[in-house]
């Protein structure tokens, strides 16, 4: 890489670019993480005792989670709900991405993408809060369903995980649509025609031709959406009920309400490890490598 850069811009600039990159990696990525690991492995002590005889490395912060039934439940519920969000987002986005990539005329596609992007010009808190209004007990969605006679009395969307899942699917649509769109778009239209021509119906064409081709895009989208939902704070904080706390909220509480950074860091690392585990699992499941995803 140094040779390429120096051929292009001269050695001085090349050294500069590489130094900046190194600086960025070490200062902004590696060091904070190392610091956090360090935190997570030390007990939470009053300032006077830091560095004292009690400041030893210990795994006790990690063990806390395994001794706390409620935190464990929330931890697994967060993972399960994030999987649910990921699956729902995929189900919503796949037809949309297929339409954008293969059915719509360029003008329709451009309009559709614009309509998808415009809501994201609004800040996430406001967007999420608007869902709070839409889904509320006396909100417009209930009014509409009541008016059309589908339900007899309003549904409590916001108690339980329903509201959180709806809000997250909405918040992360773009992270799923674009990888899917890119993947489906690169499929030669004649492949679809050939499958049709050989007698394949639409379901089989998707299942045998389009989805296998789009696999790297599906994996990328799923990983992104899962990571974002598992690590989301705003959506569960706004749309969640007391019964649907997210693990990130517990981490937040350790840091900023409990003032126990060591405990918070340990929880955050457990979440990170889990997310990495999930990525590896998804990549195995879809039989895609890192190279496919970076495409």
């Amino acid at each position: 890489m140094f040779k390429q850069l120096s051929d292009r811009f001269g050695p001085m600039v090349a050294i500069g670019i590489l130094l900046l990159m190194l600086l960025w990696l070490v200062m902004l990525v590696v060091l904070p993480q190392v610091l956090m690991i360090d935190y997570s492995l030390r007990p939470n002590l009053p300032p006077s005792q830091i560095g004292g005889p009690n400041d030893n490395y210990t795994l006790s912060n990690y063990v806390t989670l395994f001794n706390n039934q409620i935190h464990q439940t929330i931890f697994f519920k967060t993972i399960w709900s994030s999987v649910l969000v990921t699956v729902c987002t995929l189900i919503v986005c796949y037809p949309l991405a297929y339409y954008l990539a293969k059915v719509a005329t360029p003008r329709q596609a451009a309009l559709c993408v614009l309509l998808l992007i415009i809501p994201f010009w609004i800040n996430e808190i406001l967007r999420t809060f608007s869902w709070f209004i839409i889904l509320s007990y006396r909100g417009p969605l209930n009014a509409l369903l009541l008016g059309m006679g589908f339900i007899d009395r309003p549904i409590r969307f916001l108690s339980g995980d329903g509201g959180v899942i709806i809000g997250m699917v909405y918040a992360y649509i773009l992270f799923m649509v674009f990888p899917l769109y890119n993947a489906i778009e690169s499929l030669d239209g004649n492949q679809i025609k050939a499958a049709r021509n050989l007698g394949s119906g639409w379901i089989r064409t998707h299942y045998r031709i389009i989805i296998p081709h789009a696999k790297p895009g599906i994996a990328t989208g799923c990983i992104m959406v899962f990571m974002l939902s598992a690590g989301s704070y705003a959506v569960p904080a706004l749309l969640g009920s007391p019964g649907s706390r997210w693990f990130t909220q517990i981490i937040y509480n350790w840091f900023f309400e409990g003032g126990d950074w060591n405990q918070g860091a340990a929880y955050a690392f457990i979440l990170l490890l889990l997310c990495i585990g999930f990525i590896v699992l998804v990549m195995r499941l879809f039989k895609v490598g890192l190279g496919d995803i970076a495409r």
Partner: peptide
């Protein structure tokens, strides 16, 4: 997909 025809495409379109 129900016609008794089969097509060979210009770019072949093998899977």
């Amino acid at each position: 997909n129900k016609r008794p025809t089969s097509m060979i495409f210009q770019n072949l379109a093998l899977f």
